[in-house]
Design a protein around this nucleic acid. Structure first.
Lengths: 191, 191
DNA sequence: CGTCTATTTGAATGTACTCAAAAGCGGTGG
DNA sequence: CCACCGCTTTTGAGTACATTCAAATAGACG
């Protein structure tokens, strides 16, 4: 459980992290429990934390003028999630993050995030790699969203993220893929 | 010209950078000129550089199975562009980057990028902010791509990036927005 | 001036959407 | 334990938006 974060960092970095780093991380972060359907981040408010999901599931979404939810990110165990614009700059959150299950998350305040990066080169590198990976997958997601039809997008998604298919409601996966729940239902019917 | 990069960094960081940093940057980067329709990065090959456009214009795209170009990024003066997966990890480039005009670019090798980040905390911060901003805009782009119709996407785009409308061929803007050139032509006809 | 590329226009087609309603599923309380 | 309620998924019918195919026009470059 506590070791989940260590495991995650070591896998990402490809090297072991010291006990000192780990204890600094523990000193500058904390765990919190959320019920189902609670908000980790609310649109319009400052998002001061980034979250590492230890247990549970949540998702982030934008609301457009019509009031439709547009799912940006899905997160289960070992995923990081936050509202990037708000956390990294000094703006209000543009997205909402909501739990889908009772969730236990490790939270890092933006100030402490800076401190961690400042005190250990390896944290800096870790978070840069996180950002780089996120950027690379968003590039791929954009390319698929603009070039493939709904059917292919769903097939690709369920192949790449089978664990999400099990746990995330279908209408949210539809939104993530940029289609309506009715359409996704029809796509699934034709295998 | 040389000062363009300094200006860009200082604006991003919100503080001045020292002469020492600037000279380190100059020692670890170089300029290169490209003709129109030349490749900065080719799919399948290692992308060892990131590019800061000093003058000119270029774009990056993925090719899908059908051989369609899917525009990921557009870049003119003061934009950074690279193939993130390849530059940041040790993989082959998944995208192609091609010039649209004769282009002069500042190039930073990935090794030198590491050196710069290692020697000056401020470079580290600068590039993290770049990544964070890129992430935030991709989130917004995804949300708009999956939630708005082609008409709104074009209007939003031309309001936000009027300079691209001037300089980038229409069929590339169409691809960036996830529509066909014929459709964009019709959209423009109805104002 | 001629060629190559980009943009526009037309007509037919198709994919995904909207509106509407039924069926399925899960949790809660009587 | 069963009945009810709310939420999710499925299904149907009609519609709208964007695509495809095809061809004409416009623009850029040598």
């Amino acid at each position: 459980m506590e070791d989940l974060i260590r495991k995650n960092m070591e896998r990402t970095l490809g090297e072991e992290i010291s006990e000192e780093m780990l204890s600094d991380l523990k000193a500058l972060s904390f765990e919190k429990n959320y019920d189902k359907k609670e908000y980790l981040v609310e649109t319009g408010q400052a998002c001061n934390y980034q979250f590492f999901i230890l247990e549970g599931a949540c998702y982030s979404y934008y609301l457009n003028e019509k009031g439709n939810k547009n799912v940006i990110q899905l997160a289960i165990e070992e995923y990081w999630i936050t509202d990037a614009p708000s956390y990294f700059r000094e703006t209000a959150a543009v997205s909402t993050i909501e739990t889908l299950e009772p969730t236990r998350a490790l939270m890092i305040h933006k100030k402490d995030f800076e401190k961690l990066c400042f005190s250990h080169q390896l944290f800096d590198r870790f978070f840069r790699i996180l950002l780089q990976n996120a950027l690379a997958s968003l590039h791929t997601r954009i390319a698929k969203t603009i070039s493939e039809d709904a059917d292919h997008r769903y097939k690709g998604f369920s192949k790449r993220y089978p664990h999400f298919i099990q746990r995330i409601p279908q209408y949210l996966i539809a939104s993530y893929l940029g289609i309506k729940p009715q359409s996704l239902s029809r796509i699934r019917k034709n295998l």
